[in-house]
Design a protein around this nucleic acid. Structure first.
Lengths: 344, 344
DNA sequence: CTGAAAGCGCTAACAC
DNA sequence: GTGTTAGCGCTTTCAG
């Protein structure tokens, strides 16, 4: 009843062949006669033989597996990127092992260990937002397991066989603001998160530079710093509307805050975009479900996953004695103009 | 430079000890002297030794890994369930291997093979919606690898060590409709997907029974069958509004269709819920972002994941000679009443 | 075309 | 406390 799984040895005994012949037959080597192959396959099928990857990988010294570590497996962004990773990895013949850190350095460290213990051939990581110490990546680097950071990348940790893929947040924000100005807006407010996080820093700078380049002086009273969610977005909007000179547009660094602003405006009887235009960032699925539909920036999540895997693949394929220089890929975001900013 | 990973053998040589002692020291066995343990640990640290799980698992005959197969890794529902699975599995000391079938039986089959080859100790599956043939699960069952289906379960495939976790869709729909009737609605329309899919069947039946139980005769012209998304939801609504006797409520079998209906109503200048109430199903994140906020049914995704793992754990822990009878867990959904149906 | 033999890195009897 | 030995299931020289 316990039905031990059939092994190559079992097949060998049953067919009165050696294990090597069985192994070769199953691998479809050309130096095995068709007749034997047929017999082997038939029996394998009959016993529903399943090769033991553990043993094969141990013997070969190759697992054909990539490790992925993300802060969350939920939400919109990361699952999308992971999907890109999984798809591209499958295309290249790799399996993928996925872990989440839950934004916790402790778990991040534990998962990196787990991936290393599992003998993955390369690792793709997006950092927990509390990660300040990178010692757990030392082992990865020192054993020359290629490492690609994506989206949330490290400034302080580089080296051979360590690369990064990120989005050009600056560019994305710049495009949004330039578009708003083109629509005739001049007093453009900006909701931003903490500037020590690279995405917010980039988006904020893009906002400032676009303003200046178009000859507008950004009014510091129109930039609001803080948490960015639906609630705070609404609160920030309310605050701004109380000021004497109110804005004619809002660019929020994420979509949730933009929706909050949108709802507050509607609640106060203001029209969007006629009175005040609103734009977000990330192209969350709900941006097409609110009214008016929200202008935002698409981050090409799949592309990020795909690029990350390709980068890894390059390091894997490269000459092992001549490690790859660190390389950064910066992806171009895409402005999606929708109703919430279309004045003309 | 190539920096081969340190092995137990390396440690043994360096310290002039046997591999068994090293192995025991690292595992913190009590029959190794503290002094030796210290030396071993120190060197292991220095060489940043990483145990090779492959070898250990091969030797032990246990991988401590559960396999998960979902139709998608994106969207809202599945990542949430997978999160529940991963969290509970971690709590129980299991690793998790996640695959997606992309709703394709071919890939489903391939992934099941992959999981079996990887020697997972149990498998959690939500079926691709095109899966009609279950032969690929035969191998799983025949080798007594415990199997838990969740959300999308099979009717035709059962056996020892095969269980299922699902949502009581009937109950959820019943609650929604009972609530609508309580709000004074009598002409309640229903948007449903194809009835051969168990979730739609259950929800439809819940709708019918709730009506009848409350003394209302469901009008067949108010039930619309078809694809359920934002676009079709709007279209179905438009169609219904053209009929002479229009509904005073709509219960859509998913949230996207409900939002479509909502938008159509607003576009035609009707008030929700005053003129027509609207309810959906699934508690998608966007249901609190639309206006009015959408009444819906929460499926307790995490709970589903957690239950599935616990069920698996029970089978794993059970007497291997006395296989566990198939068991089904049916989870209770939770009605979330929001603005879109609050008439009173 | 097939077989014998070695070994991937680790663990677990079994000895002493 | 520590060492010896065997072997998990597979692949891969090397011989024939």
């Amino acid at each position: 009843m316990a039905n031990r799984r059939a092994s190559i040895t079992d097949l060998a005994k049953a067919l009165n062949l050696s294990t090597s012949t069985i192994s070769r037959a199953l691998a479809d080597h050309n130096d095995v006669s068709e007749a034997t192959k047929k017999r082997v396959r038939a029996l394998a099928e009959e016993l529903s033989y399943q090769p033991n990857q553990l043993a094969a990988a141990l013997r070969r010294g190759r697992t054909n597996t990539l490790g992925v570590l993300v802060p969350h497996i939920t939400g919109h962004f990361f699952p999308q990127v992971v999907n890109g990773i999984a798809t591209e990895a499958a295309r290249l013949g790799f399996n993928v092992m996925i872990c989440q850190s839950n934004e916790d350095v402790k778990q991040e460290r534990k998962n990196i260990d787990l991936l290393m213990n599992s003998q993955v051939e390369g690792i793709l990581v997006s950092l927990a937002n509390t990660t300040k110490d990178f010692s757990h990546f030392e082992a990865v680097r020192s054993q020359n397991v290629p490492l690609v950071f994506f989206d949330r990348v490290v400034e302080g940790f580089r080296g051979d066989n360590v690369s990064a893929v990120m989005l050009d947040d600056y560019q994305g924000a710049y495009q949004v603001v330039a578009h708003l100005i083109e629509q005739g807006c001049t007093r453009i407010a900006h909701f931003t998160g903490p500037l020590h996080i690279n995405i917010h820093k980039g988006r904020h700078q893009g906002y400032l530079d676009a303003m200046k380049d178009k000859g507008l002086q950004p009014d510091p009273r129109l930039t609001v710093f803080g948490e960015l969610n639906q609630k705070t977005g609404a609160a920030y909007m309310r605050k701004l509307l109380k000021q004497p000179e109110r804005p004619d547009a809002v660019f929020a660094s994420n979509d949730l805050a933009a929706v909050g602003a949108l709802q507050e405006l509607k609640a106060q009887g203001l029209r969007v975009p006629e009175d005040i235009a609103v734009a977000g960032f990330s192209n969350e699925p709900f941006t097409t479900l609110v009214e008016p539909q929200l202008t935002t920036v698409d981050q090409g999540c799949d592309t990020m996953g795909i690029s990350a895997v390709r980068l890894l693949q390059k390091m894997l394929a490269g000459n092992p004695d001549r490690l790859m220089q660190p390389r950064n890929v910066v992806l171009k975001p895409k402005l999606l103009v929708r109703e919430s900013t279309m004045k003309k």
